[in-house]
Design a binder for these strands. Structure first.
Length: 375
DNA sequence: ATGTCCCGCCATACG
DNA sequence: CGTATGGCGGGACAT
């Protein structure tokens, strides 16, 4: 395989990005009727290696869009499952963070802040059977390993990343900051890299959007959440597909690449898949049957508790101010402004304390760079 | 130079 | 053992 290659430099990184791949994945399986998703099928259809599918699937599962069913098999839950998933992550996040032994404000900031400051991201693994375990050592060991494994999984990182937004009033955050907040056991650098992956797929779902910090400095991501979009099974996907991509180097004649592997195109599960999606991701549906202008959009600034877009259980009549063709109308922006960045609970305060500490130390450490890990 | 992040080696988990 | 998962990070591409 490999095929000589290295010839046509039509190669463009963007075309192979995880985000775009995720968008394709989504549009491919969001078209009604899909219930099961085989990883092999997805991989061959999207023309990528299995490895990439794992990345996507893991984060999608973290937000409820997919659910693992069995080996090589996932169940499509749809965007409508997102609200519940976020809700769950939310109180899960608020619930944990026991603080272990921190009743008073964090005192002193450890002289040597190596890397092990974790305090927030704690998978609340209920130990309801921490004592009465008839489990043989094997199980214990395995469990321990799984835990350790899981500890650094993309899925967990994703959940914690999301919790960051959903549990606080943080609206925008840079990946560096996020990585520091979500310190685990891995080096910051590695974590940031993973965060890029996560951010990309989350972006393709429009749960977040790339921007820059308030200081108009470093790039960062802004939480969009459910906004007012119709996260329902019907239609809607609205991947912001900008057509302003005529930024080619060599020559952009086509997007041809992707070597359709055509591995095993069985498609047994897919009962019907007409013409499926067109070639491009730019579907420009914008159908929007009737755009009831409604009122001026009495934004739900009222009291949705704290985060507007949390549909309790149903799907409110949508408000969706379509967008798509061009720059999405961010009037959520103003909505976001309404939210006062005030911490409403102790947990968040703590979180921010640590955040500040980490930030400062990291900042002072500055470009410590070159961790030169003894290999 | 710094920010992104693709690619795929290879350790693990699983069967 | 073979196969399925998915950490992890070198280093290429973007800005």
């Amino acid at each position: 395989m490999s095929s000589s290659s290295t010839h046509h430099h039509t190669y463009s990184r963007k075309q192979k990005s995880l985000g775009l791949l995720c968008t394709k994945f989504l549009s491919l399986y969001n078209k009604g009727g899909v219930r099961f998703i085989g990883l092999d099928d997805a991989a061959s259809r999207l023309g990528v290696e299995r490895r990439r599918i794992y990345d996507i699937v893991n984060v999608l599962e973290s937000v409820g869009v997919l659910a693992r069913k069995a080996k090589n098999q996932y169940t499509w839950k749809g965007f409508s499952a997102i609200p519940a998933a976020l809700e769950e992550l939310k109180d899960e996040g608020l619930k944990d963070n026991p603080g272990s032994f921190d009743d008073s404000n964090d005192s002193a900031k450890v002289s040597d802040d190596e890397d092990e400051e974790e305090t927030f991201p704690n998978v609340n693994i209920e130990s309801q059977e921490d004592k009465a375990n008839n489990l043989d050592s094997t199980t214990l060991v395995k469990s321990s390993k799984n835990e350790n494994r899981r500890e650094k999984s993309l899925a967990l990182l994703t959940q914690n990343f999301v919790k960051l937004f959903v549990c606080s009033n943080i609206e925008t955050i840079s990946l560096d900051e996020a990585a520091k907040l979500l310190l685990g056991n891995s080096i910051i650098r590695t974590k940031v890299r993973r965060l890029y992956d996560i951010a990309n797929v989350l972006s393709s779902m429009n749960l977040i959007e790339k921007t820059h910090t308030k200081n108009t400095r470093k790039p960062a991501f802004r939480w969009l959440g459910l906004r007012g979009r119709t996260w329902n099974e019907s239609v809607d996907l609205a991947h912001n597909s900008n057509v302003k991509e005529s930024r080619k180097r060599m020559f952009g004649t086509d997007i041809t690449n992707i070597s359709f592997k055509r591995n095993k195109v069985d498609l047994s599960i897919d009962g019907q898949s007409p013409k499926m999606q067109n070639q491009e991701e730019n579907i420009s549906p914008r159908a929007q049957p009737e755009i009831r202008k409604l009122k001026k959009d009495a934004k739900q600034t009222s009291k949705n508790y704290q985060f507007g877009p949390f549909a309790p259980n149903n799907v409110p009549t949508v408000v969706s101010s379509e967008n798509n063709t061009a720059k999405p109308v961010h009037d959520w922006d103003s909505l976001a402004q309404v939210h006062r960045p005030q911490y409403q609970n102790q947990a968040l305060k703590d979180l921010f304390s640590h955040y500040m500490e980490a930030w400062k130390s990291w900042n002072s450490e500055a470009a410590g760079k070159k961790s030169r890990k003894t290999k």
